[in-house]
Amino acid sequence: MMSLQDKLYNWLTIKVVVDARPEDTAANDTKEMFERLLLEEHGISHPVVTKDEIMYFINIERNGEPKTYRFPRDLIEVMLDQITEEPEKYVNYPEK
Rank of each mutant, 00 (worst) to 15 (best):
M1P: 04
M1K: 12
M2A: 12
S3P: 03
S3G: 10
S3K: 06
L4N: 02
L4G: 04
L4Y: 03
L4E: 04
Q5C: 12
Q5K: 15
D6H: 12
D6S: 15
K7C: 05
K7Q: 08
K7P: 02
L8D: 00
L8K: 02
N10E: 10
W11T: 02
W11N: 00
T13H: 07
I14N: 02
K15E: 09
K15W: 11
K15I: 03
V16S: 06
V16C: 09
V16F: 08
V16K: 01
V17E: 01
V17N: 01
V17W: 00
V17L: 05
V18C: 08
V18G: 00
V18Y: 03
D19P: 11
P22R: 07
D24I: 00
A26K: 05
A26R: 02
A26E: 09
A26Q: 07
A27F: 03
A27C: 13
N28S: 09
N28T: 02
N28A: 09
D29Y: 04
T30H: 01
T30G: 02
K31G: 01
K31M: 03
K31L: 03
E32G: 04
E32M: 09
M33C: 05
M33T: 01
F34G: 00
E35Q: 05
E35T: 01
R36D: 05
R36W: 07
R36L: 07
L37A: 04
L37T: 03
L37I: 06
L37C: 03
L38H: 01
L39N: 13
L39W: 12
E40D: 14
H42L: 04
H42K: 04
H42N: 07
G43M: 09
I44Y: 01
S45Q: 10
H46C: 07
H46R: 08
P47M: 02
V49P: 06
V49G: 05
T50A: 08
K51G: 04
K51N: 07
D52S: 10
D52W: 11
D52E: 10
E53F: 06
E53L: 07
E53D: 12
I54V: 12
M55K: 11
M55I: 04
M55E: 10
Y56I: 01
Y56W: 06
Y56G: 01
I60T: 05
E61T: 15
E61S: 10
E61L: 07
N63E: 14
G64Y: 08
G64I: 04
E65N: 12
E65H: 15
P66D: 13
K67C: 13
K67R: 14
T68H: 06
Y69P: 07
Y69W: 11
Y69M: 06
R70E: 13
F71L: 09
F71K: 05
P72L: 15
D74V: 10
D74N: 11
L75V: 08
E77S: 05
E77R: 02
E77M: 06
E77T: 03
E77F: 05
V78H: 11
M79L: 15
L80D: 11
L80R: 08
D81M: 15
Q82H: 13
I83N: 06
T84S: 15
T84R: 10
T84F: 12
E85G: 11
E86C: 08
E86Q: 11
P87G: 14
P87Y: 14
P87Q: 14
K89F: 08
K89M: 11
Y90C: 06
Y90F: 11
V91S: 06
N92A: 10
N92W: 11
P94E: 02
P94G: 03
P94K: 04
E95W: 04
